[in-house]
């Protein structure tokens, strides 16, 4: 069996939270261990402020761990060029951010940046973005449509891993269901390794991956 795709060993992270002019530090990750194999889909649940988003941000190095080791393909993330790491490890955020320009410009962003040769129209089709929206200003889309554009844009980078930071929590129920189904389908079609943060237990069950819970700085596998 091939080695782990993503591996976290004894990872600690403290975050500062500002309250008015004061800031207080608190340890959100206290020795987290996690092993994810290629093509696996795992969900991470936990209460608000538990450090779920922080955990994802450490994997693509948008934030830095205080201590511990994080490996992607057996290689310490600190040994990657951060740009190359982020191309391999894509991320979809809770609140979709579209860039200035058309839907096509947004989806083609990664293709232009990395010359990945991604088929923009095919990706848009996979992300269920109607053809007639392709040349519209992305800023005028609904939140659900914007999130689908962000997913297609992340896939245009041809990543191996997709980090999903509560990708449906800012959407209404109908849009959330569509995006959820889309992501599950894309995961199997593209053979992506996916780490999906959610606060909804029902969603974690529907996704039917390996479920973990982050609580008191520790990550525990949920059984049953």
């Amino acid at each position: 069996m091939a080695g782990p795709h993503i591996e976290l060993k004894d990872v600690y992270r403290t975050v500062s939270r500002r309250q008015g002019t004061d800031s207080a530090s608190s340890a959100v990750l206290k020795g987290v261990d996690l092993t994810v194999y290629r093509g696996e889909l795992i969900t991470i649940m936990g209460p608000s402020g538990a450090g779920k988003s922080t955990l994802l941000r450490l994997i693509n190095r948008l934030s830095e761990a205080d201590s511990g080791v994080i490996r992607v393909n057996g290689r310490d993330v600190r040994d990657y060029d951060p740009r190359e790491l982020r191309r391999r490890v894509g991320m979809v955020f809770q609140i979709p951010v579209v860039f200035k320009g058309s839907v096509r410009d947004n989806i083609a962003f990664g293709k232009r940046l990395w010359d990945t040769g991604a088929d923009v129209d095919a990706l848009a089709g996979e992300a269920a973005i109607p053809r007639e929206l392709m040349d519209e200003d992305a800023a005028h889309l609904s939140v659900g449509e914007k999130q689908r554009v962000c997913i297609a844009r992340a896939l245009a980078n041809k990543p191996e891993v997709l980090l999903l930071d509560e990708p449906t929590s800012s959407l209404d129920r109908a849009a959330a269901e569509k995006v959820e189904q889309l992501l599950v389908r894309l995961q199997s079609e593209h053979g992506l390794t996916m780490l999906w943060v959610t606060h909804e237990q029902a969603q974690a069950r529907r996704i039917s991956g390996y479920n973990y819970v982050l609580e008191d700085g520790q990550l525990c596998r949920e059984h049953g």
Binding site: N60, L62, R83, E84, R86, R87, G90, M91, F93, I95, V97, F99, K100, F109, G110, L113, W114, C150, R153, A154, N157
Partner: peptide, 20 residues
């Protein structure tokens, strides 16, 4: 910040991410 980090997460340089 969200926009800047969305750019960075795609692998841009800080200079590209902060252009706007």
């Amino acid at each position: 910040r969200a926009e800047v980090e969305a750019y960075l997460a795609l692998g841009t340089t800080p200079r590209m991410a902060t252009e706007h």
